[in-house]
């Protein structure tokens, strides 16, 4: 799948992602809600279907990325230098990216309408559907990020480079406050996503982060089993089955 992209500044690209580019399965939402295969009550499965049906008309997808040089500072293991700025990262993230010579910083969003709909349902008598709509929206935002990730990988392959898995401030022990530094690398209001003083993205259903790029890097699975954050949103879907323990 080849997506159209527009270079809005040098090495800053906005990528056109259409809802038809996404492949969102009900099973992913079920897993995120906590249900194993086939365990979900039929009523809630129907609610997921209803929420998925709302996505095409309620999602305003925008996505983009910027490619910058990246290096590991000599003698330090607590972060990486991206575009001349030092990003403080836990060794989980820095270790996964240390072989990269470039970083693709990215942001994408599905817009505010799904979260508004969810909020409305929660407040007006249909809390289960409201909650399921919220989780479905989160899964949709993650699916958009998958598409953007694949696109970046394809573009980097054109340059003879490989990509790593992706990492976001707020996860893998990488402080969410680093969002400010990450967003300072983008043009203002890039992809329509803004950041609050407390590093909260608006629209909320947005994803930002970094992908390592280089000749020597390779894609590796997440190492959730080494992370201490037991109630992480991603833990249920990224740990192999049997290792998941919702606490």
């Amino acid at each position: 799948m080849s997506l159209r992209e527009v270079e809005i500044e040098k090495d800053v690209f906005e990528v056109a992602i259409d809802f038809t580019d996404l492949s969102l399965e009900r099973g992913e939402v079920e897993l995120t809600l906590g249900y194993s295969d086939g365990e979900i009550p039929v009523h809630f499965a129907a609610m997921i279907d209803e929420a998925i049906l709302q996505l095409p008309k309620r999602c305003e997808i925008r996505a983009g990325y910027r490619v910058l040089d990246m290096e590991k500072p000599a003698g330090r293991h607590d972060g990486l230098i991206v575009g001349g700025k030092f990003f403080a990262m836990d060794k989980i993230v820095a270790g996964q990216l240390k072989k990269a010579s470039k970083a693709a910083l990215f942001v994408c969003t599905i817009g505010p309408d799904m979260e508004n709909w969810s909020r409305h349902l929660l407040k007006h008598g249909d809390p289960a559907l409201g909650y399921i709509a919220d989780v479905t929206a989160s899964v949709a935002a993650e699916t958009v990020t998958n598409v953007l990730h694949d696109h970046i990988a394809e573009r980097m392959r054109d340059r003879g480079l490989n990509v790593t898995n992706r990492y976001s401030p707020g996860y893998c022990n990488w402080s969410v406050s680093e969002q400010h530094l990450l967003f300072s690398m983008f043009p203002e209001n890039f992809c329509g996503v803004t950041l609050s003083e407390s590093a909260l993205m608006s629209p909320i259903k947005s994803v930002s982060g970094v992908i390592g790029v280089g000749e020597k890097v390779e894609w590796k699975d997440y190492i959730c089993d080494r992370c201490g954050v037991k109630d992480c949103t991603y833990r249920a879907t990224r740990l192999p089955k049997g290792q998941v323990k919702i606490e």
Partner: peptide
Amino acid sequence: GDLHDIGKN
């Protein structure tokens, strides 16, 4: 500073 309301609700 925090706008998340699903969990709180």
